[in-house]
Design a protein around this nucleic acid. Structure first.
Lengths: 203, 203
DNA sequence: CTACAATGGAACGCAACCGTTCCGTCTCAT
DNA sequence: ATGAGACGGAACGGTTGCGTTCCATTGTAG
């Protein structure tokens, strides 16, 4: 492509290494200090990079952070399709629990959620990269169950999706509480409750 | 008391007026810019007050914000005891929905939640002033229903409390979405779902 | 009327941060 | 070998914020 003709291959490799170091350092700084207190000087220092190298890639702090968000989203693992509602829901809860146990992702998402209150671009990015895919996955999981007859045909898909997500997010209840590993017994009971709630989501 | 002998009564009244103006201004600044970007200069300017007047009352920014938190908590309205689980739950959902519709309170709580991730004192304050009372109210509501026989005697109170709070918080799903007023039909369906979930919370 | 305490306002020193610019070095493609 | 381009590092000017200090004003108590 045109890049390879305009930029030496070796430089491209080096550029990617530097870019990766910047992204990793920015993620770490964002985790430690939050969006408002994340300093470009600290990112450069942590990455072992000159500030110029950062500003050569991103025009300012905000675009950099927006890219970090997609970086986080790319790490999300797709949900398996197990064939039964019970196992699908259990997988969804485990998936959610794992996300909440990821201290770095949770700190960043909690922080950017607060920041999104005041920054429309960030709010849009959060919506499209974090909320929409998760919601779509939940809805698809439920639709499959409806198609199999495990859930009533007149299910209120929207409400059911809310319930599934809301209940899967139960523990830990607040971001500042460390997330203990999900006990299998607790998981089983939680799944039963979720199934009861879903069944009640009639249109 | 000793205060009245050491401080003129008129000065005390004036002090309270200034204190109130500072608190109101700090709440506004906190809402507009968040904890990290809330500046003491801006608070003083907004309150029409000298910075010295602030630092005469609080040693720094953090204690001031911690006091704001209790200020917010004092505005919380206690839940009524209606005598039926259905109405109690409906009241709880309405109560929660009203809180989420309060843009100022939501912005501040969302912001301080993120900040609490990195500030243990703030996390403790959030826990005792925001989480514990709400959780206690939910648990008490459920215990009354158990006593009346509306919920099974072997109810898992802890799990049920989580479910009640988690489901009541469903809409809006994210803090940056404006909260539309809760439609009565939606409320009724949501309450039905919550009751189904609660009934499934067996120990 | 006098003494006093709290006030608004302005300025201070200090530190941090942003985004830019410059330097000397290093690594490649030619 | 040579030139181009990205590099780390350091410094810059300008802004912002914190917490302190000073001062002239205000209003009350005695």
């Amino acid at each position: 492509m045109s890049d390879s003709s305009r930029r030496p291959a070796g430089a491209a490799v080096l550029r990617q290494e530097v870019t990766g170091a910047i992204i990793e350092a920015a993620l770490a700084e964002l985790t430690d200090h939050g969006y408002a207190r994340m300093s470009m000087d600290a990112v450069a220092r942590r990455a072992g990079v000159g500030k110029a190298a950062i500003y050569r890639r991103w025009s300012s702090k905000e675009p950099l952070v927006l890219d970090l968000l997609t970086e986080l989203a790319d790490q999300a693992v797709p949900l398996p399709d197990t064939g039964t509602l019970y196992e699908d829901v259990a997988g969804f809860v485990r998936h959610t629990s794992a996300l909440r146990a990821d201290t770095r992702a949770m700190r960043i998402l909690t922080d950017l959620t607060a920041e999104a209150t005041r920054n429309p671009r960030l709010a849009t990015a959060m919506h499209t990269t974090a909320e929409l895919p998760r919601r779509a996955a939940a809805t698809e999981l439920l639709q499959r169950a409806v198609d199999r007859g495990e859930l009533p045909a007149d299910l209120d898909l929207d409400l059911a999706t809310d319930c599934l997500i809301g209940l899967a997010y139960l523990r830990p209840r607040t971001p500042w509480q460390p997330s203990e590993p999900l006990d299998p017994g607790v998981l089983a009971r939680l799944v039963e409750v979720i199934l009861a709630a879903l069944t009640a989501c009639r249109g």
